[in-house]
């Protein structure tokens, strides 16, 4: 036991929450990072992490007090969910996180945003969006598993802001992020909360998160 497991880098930014680095979470990350893990296992283990991310993300939503009577005839002072929510996935990889969201919020509405990198300029470009009509009245869980440069996430937030969603009602959920991506995102989108599973070492020359796990969408849908 000379080497110990690598845990997420920490972040001092106020809007960033990193999932508690429990042994179980690290073991799940080890499974999905391993290049030898096949798609069936990759889907299964990433779904488990996503489920924990969603649970953590939902904790940032408001609740109000509620008193109920128990089946054993006691009064119990508890809490109640408050406010409408919706999910918005950045296609295609973000759609992989929808199941985890639905597992926690059964009939949640889900909007879609398609952003692709422009082949010539290498900049993010918005191709398509379909969002709930009343999105400005909802808390939005923005879903994208990997935060590399932050380009598409920032563009997606701009789309949401343009629809009238206040920044402090947007929660951005991602599995693995780069320190650069986190920094750029927080600078460009003040007030938006980020919930991430793991902050990695950095970006490589191809602008992939390292050590990362490769292309999440490819591994989840195709490879």
């Amino acid at each position: 036991m000379s080497k110990s497991a690598t845990l997420s880098k920490s972040s001092t930014l106020p809007d960033v929450t990193v999932l508690p680095q429990t042994p179980q979470l690290i073991a799940l990350f080890t499974m999905i990072r391993d290049v030898k893990t096949q798609r069936g296992d990759f889907v299964f283990y990433s779904n488990r992490i996503i489920r924990m991310m969603v649970e953590e993300g939902l904790n940032h939503l408001p609740v109000k007090e509620l008193e109920v009577s128990t089946p054993t005839d006691l009064a119990y002072k508890g809490l109640q969910f408050e406010g409408k929510i919706c999910g918005v996935s950045i296609m295609r990889a973000g759609e992989a996180m929808e199941q985890g969201l639905r597992d926690c919020c059964r009939s949640v509405r889900i909007g879609k945003i398609l952003i692709q990198r422009d082949e010539e300029t290498a900049d993010a470009k918005l191709f398509y969006e379909k969002l709930p009509a009343d999105i400005k009245d909802r808390y939005v869980l923005l879903l994208d598993p990997m935060l590399a440069t932050g380009g598409s996430a920032i563009m997606a937030v701009e789309v949401l802001l343009s629809k009238g969603v206040p920044a402090n009602r947007i929660l951005f959920l991602n599995l693995i992020s780069s320190p650069e991506g986190i920094e750029t995102f927080c600078k460009s989108c003040p007030g938006v909360k980020i919930i991430t599973g793991f902050i990695d070492e950095g970006l490589n020359e191809k602008r992939f998160v390292v050590p990362g796990l490769g292309d999440f969408g490819d591994r989840y849908y195709c490879l």
Binding site: M1, K3, S4, A5, T6, T22, P23, Q24, I26, A27, F29, T30, R33, D34, V35, K36, R48, M52, E201, N204, F208, V209, V210, P211, G212, L213, G214, D215, R219
Partner: peptide
């Protein structure tokens, strides 16, 4: 998921698809 945290774990080194290496855990 919380109960799974109580298992014994050891470190495990894996290669990632980006060519990097990651030291993680395995029960």
């Amino acid at each position: 998921e919380s109960a799974m945290d109580t298992l014994p774990y050891v470190t495990k080194e894996v290669a990632t698809a980006t060519g990097g290496e990651y030291i993680g855990l395995s029960p």
